[in-house]
Write a protein that binds this DNA or RNA. Structure first.
Length: 454
DNA sequence: AGCACA
């Protein structure tokens, strides 16, 4: 009968062994703490910690049996129980005679983490939320997600094992902060081990996989329109599929919006690779291509709904384009490829346009974030409003990165309680952000607030 | 709080 063998297994006295089984240990008890505990009784030659589904069990092995017996008998009659970090630890002889280290992929530190998301609604955790959470520790190269018997899992690829380890140490066993999840999603706890993988294969940007190193990767249809999983943003609202290319439509266009004006405005957030302008239903639209999605995301969030000129003129509406790389056939006053160092400029006569054309043929490399290209003769064209027009400043120079840092990269080895000093992102002077801006939650965003369940 | 690849 099963009850007999379990009786056997759990009977109070195990046959002596130089290996002791410890349980009820505090979370992530270290090897050092186990050695300390055994020291008074003998030499601990081997340990194995974080054992069991709750990772709160361990084994210690003494050089010889007498030392193990000494420890067991001491605590059997002691009024003070064995303790680690003030927590009572229960000891007994192990049913094995030696510790065997079964080093699996999960134990050997690597740059890819296997993350199991536990909870009723684990599958509702979006890849974007995972990206945000793990980006706190360093650049996340790729993420793949999948459903296994273990539940909803993700593989998160970092540059190196050190970064992966810092993320694992900080997040393992913690829950995704409530404010990153939409209301109806229950608690989601992360259980993290190393994966044996070193480089994930991501064929498409989709709702289940992302490659953040390759903005040119095609976007799977599933990522754009309800591919089963709704992508949920920080505010719990639906997210569009992000892209490195923004589609801008310009409303109330009282003043001419030129290629250069757009270049100036959008350059604030990072180098621009290409711009293409065209008319759609009588309104002006433009596609603006950044080298990466992150920059486009920052630009979109910062500029959406804002006007290029004071007085509500030339209001920008931004969305993500399905394009990842624009094909610019010719450089003219409506389209330009800034990545090609020298290209003939067709149909573009500065005298005709009535303004200097400073960025013509300028290679993208010239962008350094501080170069501001003034827009022309104030008599002819109204100046873009203060926020964008006035020589942006050191603030703007570092802004895109700065903002990025604030959103995704809290200080390196973050302690759970984090530095309270994270400031909200700095904006160029004069710029006002609407309430719905995703940038706003930034100050409270980074990984503090993770709760340890149990 | 109960024995180590889930």
């Amino acid at each position: 009968m099963a009850s007999v063998s379990s009786q056997q297994q759990f009977r109070y006295t195990q046959p002596p062994s130089k290996v002791l089984h410890l349980r009820n240990l505090p979370w992530e008890c270290t090897e050092e703490e186990l050695i300390e505990l055994g020291k008074p009784f003998g030499k601990v030659v081997n340990t194995k910690c974080n054992v069991g589904s709750n990772r709160n069990q361990a084994f210690i092995e003494f050089t010889d049996l007498n030392q193990a017996i000494a420890m067991i008998s001491y605590y059997a009659s002691s009024s003070e129980p064995a303790q680690v970090r003030g927590k009572t630890v229960y000891l007994q002889y192990s049913n094995r005679q030696e510790i065997v280290h079964n080093k699996t992929a999960a134990d050997v530190a690597g740059n890819v983490l296997l993350v199991t998301i536990e909870g009723e609604d684990a599958h509702l955790v979006s890849i974007d939320v995972l990206h945000l959470v793990f980006s706190a520790f360093g650049f996340v190269h790729k993420i793949t997600t999948f459903e296994k018997t273990a539940g909803f899992q993700a593989l998160i690829q970092f540059s190196d094992a050190e970064t992966a380890t810092s993320a694992k140490d900080a997040l393992d066993g913690r829950s995704i902060p409530r404010y990153l999840l939409s209301e109806q999603v229950g608690p989601c706890t992360l259980k993290i081990t190393y994966s044996g993988h070193t480089d994930l294969t991501v064929k498409f940007q989709s709702h289940r996989s992302r490659d953040y190193t390759n903005p040119y990767l095609p976007v799977a249809q599933s990522a754009i329109e309800g591919g089963g999983q709704v992508m949920v943003g920080l505010d719990g609202k639906r997210l569009e599929a992000e892209s490195n290319v923004l589609l801008a439509s310009i409303e109330n266009m009282q003043y001419a919006v030129t290629l250069d004006v757009l270049h100036t405005v959008f350059s604030t957030f990072g180098p621009i690779q290409k711009i293409a302008m065209f008319d759609k239903n009588g309104a002006l639209q433009a596609l603006i291509q950044y080298p990466d999605t992150q920059t486009a995301v920052v630009a979109k969030e910062a500029l959406e709904g804002h006007c290029i000129y004071d007085g509500g003129f030339c209001k920008l509406h931004l969305s993500y384009s399905r394009h990842t790389d624009l094909s610019i056939k010719v450089n003219n006053d409506r389209s330009r490829d800034y990545t090609v160092p020298i290209t003939p400029v067709v149909n573009l006569q500065p005298s005709i346009l009535g303004q200097p054309v400073p960025m013509v043929g300028a290679p993208a490399q010239q962008y350094n974030g501080s170069q501001y290209t003034p827009v022309s003769d104030p008599a002819m064209t109204p100046q873009p409003q203060a926020g964008w027009g006035a020589a942006p400043p050191a603030v703007a120079q570092s802004m895109p990165l700065q903002m990025y840092n604030n959103v995704y990269m809290p200080p390196g080895n973050m302690p759970p309680q984090m530095s309270p000093g994270n400031m909200p992102p700095q904006m160029p002077p004069g710029m006002q952000f609407p309430n719905h801006s995703m940038l706003q939650p930034t100050s409270t965003l980074p990984a503090y607030g993770f709760d340890r369940t149990q």
